[in-house]
């Protein structure tokens, strides 16, 4: 019965195409990792990755060390010079912190928008599909990680959590940011210049910062930090430095290219930033569940 066989094959073909399209459509909209089954799968794979990454990190670390040893002398010279400045700076910071605390207790304000609790985590894998700039870290919901939290390294912001399982979570790196993942940002020390980081330019390897205010004071060399007005990130996370300023395609607003402060290719240890003050975005999500 060849005709019957062909009919069956056609039916299988069409149903599978329909199923695949439905799955793709569903996963574009939904946050997969809110599903328990998906959390289980990604935790199981994460468990194996945890086992593998230890020796691998050791090997990679060894080669990095060999590389470092070559540059030790030069770095030492530079560091010695910087140490002088650092001492006086540390003293100043201490003084300012103390003063800040005193002043805050005077006006009975316990929580500032810049306060946060860091959750330390280690990167256990990088997505092999490099069109998705994602890494996985070994901390999840059980440790307090929630979707939308900011992720930083010691040198600056690297991305945000887009999905959290129980034991692991997925981080979207800044290189993969688009209009869906915007960061509300300001110029450090000048609140008049406010805007959104809303994309990444692959050609120049810089982030795009669109200024919302029309101050005309955006300049090369200024430091961009998160403003805390987006609802999830605390204030003052270092994002990067302005490397060039230009008008946008309609000539209405200014767009700055920002050199990211953190090295986005080589990330090992990160901190997930859980801000102390009430954040409406996270609360809403919990209510929905």
């Amino acid at each position: 019965m060849p005709s019957f066989l062909r009919k069956r094959k056609l039916i299988v073909l069409f149903t599978s195409i329909i199923i695949v399209v439905t799955i793709i459509g569903y996963s574009i909209r939904a946050d997969e990792q809110s599903n328990i089954g998906v959390q289980f799968i990604s935790d199981t794979v994460g468990f194996f990755q945890n086992i593998v990454y230890q020796p691998v990190n050791y090997v990679i670390g060894f080669f990095d060390n060999v590389d470092d040893i070559r540059n030790v002398y030069k770095q030492n010279e530079v560091l010695k010079e910087e140490l002088q400045d650092y001492k006086s700076l540390a003293f100043q910071v201490n003084e300012l912190e103390k003063e800040n605390e005193e002043l805050r207790s005077l006006i009975e304000m316990d929580e500032a928008i810049s306060d946060y609790t860091p959750i330390k985590a280690t990167v256990i894998s990088r997505s092999p599909e490099q069109w998705f700039d994602q890494v996985k870290i070994n901390r999840g919901r059980m440790h307090g990680v929630e979707p939308n939290m900011a992720v930083t390294t010691a040198s600056g912001m690297v991305g945000k959590v887009i999905g959290a399982s129980q034991m692991t979570s997925t981080v979207q790196l800044l290189t993969g940011f688009d209009v869906d993942n915007r960061i509300s940002a300001v110029v450090d020390g000048d609140d008049d210049i406010f805007g959104l980081v809303e994309g990444y330019d692959d050609e120049t390897d810089t982030l795009l910062f669109r200024e919302m205010t029309d101050s005309g004071q955006l300049e090369v060399g200024q430091t961009i930090v998160s403003s805390g007005m987006g609802g999830v990130f605390p204030r003052g996370l270092l994002i990067g430095e302005v490397s060039s300023v230009e008008l946008d395609q309609y000539g209405l607003t200014k767009i700055a290219h920002i050199e990211p402060a953190a090295d986005l290719l080589d990330i090992n240890h990160v901190m997930v930033i859980d801000r102390d003050i009430y954040s409406p975005v996270l609360e809403n999500e919990e209510e929905e569940e």
Binding site: I24, I28, I41, S42, V45, S127, I162, T170
Partner: peptide, 15 residues
């Protein structure tokens, strides 16, 4: 499984 773990779009690799 690859997609569930490493990307946030499911069905493309499958197809």
């Amino acid at each position: 499984l690859f997609e569930l773990v490493y990307t946030d779009l499911v069905g493309v690799y499958l197809l």
